[in-house]
Amino acid sequence: MTTLVYLIPVALFLGALGLAGFLWALRSGQYEDLEGAAERILIDRDDRPDGLTGRAKMRP
């Protein structure tokens, strides 16, 4: 019983962390172009985000 008192919050916190991570990725536009992301690793050049990826933020 005593172990549950801290194990359950820990489990929930880790799960929530994963959820927050997913929601962040969604907001920052990482799901905008899944096919493109798969192909882009083959292009040999700098792959700094150029601001156009985060289209979600610029929407009116």
Binding site: D33, G36, D50
Partner: peptide, 8 residues
């Protein structure tokens, strides 16, 4: 800049 979106 120009950015292609392959999915769309």
């Amino acid at each position: 800049s120009a950015r292609v979106n392959l999915s769309t």
